[in-house]
């Protein structure tokens, strides 16, 4: 099965080699007006995310990584520069249902069972009844939650809830997946497990993933591209193309190659910080 997937992935290769940009930011800036004066959440961000990329955004709190993700999702509006998603404005992309968004918490509706939660976007978007049933089945299988369809969110563990929220974001087959520290509240072991599941899912679906995190190992383990950000004003300080192979067992985290990339990310974060002191 996995061999077939790899074969598929290698067939897709030529397409990724052409580098179709999914997200393009040019001179992007966002300033919040607060009572204590303007806060520069983002300043002069230039970044291109190509189709099939797994991009991590890493940086200390207040560096604008979540704000950038929310700007892509049209949940915040930029105050400077341009941003295009699938060659559209973020608003058009949102209205075209171009992305699935996974929040820091699972944000499942407690009065709906797991399967009805996964069905929520499908109901909003007007999918047919048979299509909805088929998609619930497929996406719950993808996140290993088969058998929990009739459970309520509060009957599941935190890790299972977050997996259900990923299934919900996958259900309507958007090519772009935006994930805002989805595993931040989970313990290390559950997190490792979900990370490798996420990689497997990415390989199987060839989606473009934007992933916000504050964990260096998580960013290096998952990404093809790591965007290092620093605060005040929120800006991009380094973009690291990962040299790790696509196939990544968990123990790849002990290889020298992995540690070298992690060291570069750490240096980038430190450089951003020394600016302050």
């Amino acid at each position: 099965m996995i061999d077939q997937m790899n074969a598929l992935a290698s067939q897709i290769k030529p397409a990724t080699a052409v580098s179709v940009p999914v997200v393009e930011a040019k001179g992007l800036g966002l300033t919040f007006e607060t009572n204590d004066g303007p806060v520069h959440a983002l300043s002069n961000v230039n970044l291109t995310i190509n189709k099939g990329d797994f991009v991590s955004f890493i940086g200390p709190s207040g560096c604008g990584k979540t704000t950038f993700l929310r700007t892509i999702a049209d949940l915040e509006q930029p105050t400077a520069g341009t941003l295009s998603v699938n060659s559209m404005t973020p608003r058009q992309a949102r209205e075209a249902r171009a992305y699935g968004y996974v929040f820091q918490a699972a944000a499942l509706l407690p009065w709906r069972t797991i399967e009805r939660n996964v069905a929520l976007p499908l109901e909003v978007m007007g999918f047919s009844r048979t299509d909805v049933a088929e998609r619930i089945h497929r996406t719950l299988e993808l996140v290993n939650l088969t058998g929990f369809e009739k459970k309520y969110p509060w009957q599941l563990s935190g890790g299972m809830q977050q997996r259900a929220s990923i299934a919900r974001a996958l259900a309507f087959d958007a090519d772009l997946l935006l994930m805002d520290e989805p595993f931040g509240a989970l313990d290390e072991i559950v997190r490792d497990h979900l990370n490798s599941q996420l990689l497997e899912l990415w390989a199987r679906t060839s989606k473009t993933i934007c992933f916000v995190t504050h964990s260096i190992p998580e960013a290096v383990y998952l990404s093809t591209k790591i965007v290092v950000m620093s605060p005040r004003p929120g800006r991009v300080t380094d973009v690291i193309e990962s040299t790790l192979p696509k196939e990544r067992p968990l123990d790849i985290r002990e290889t020298p190659e992995f540690l070298a990339i992690a060291a570069r990310v750490r240096d980038g974060l430190r450089a951003g910080h020394s600016y302050e002191d």
Partner: peptide, 13 residues
């Protein structure tokens, strides 16, 4: 919650 409302917004609901 804000998160739930943002969620519905991402669906263009």
């Amino acid at each position: 919650g804000h998160m739930e409302r943002d969620l519905m917004r991402t669906y263009a609901s």
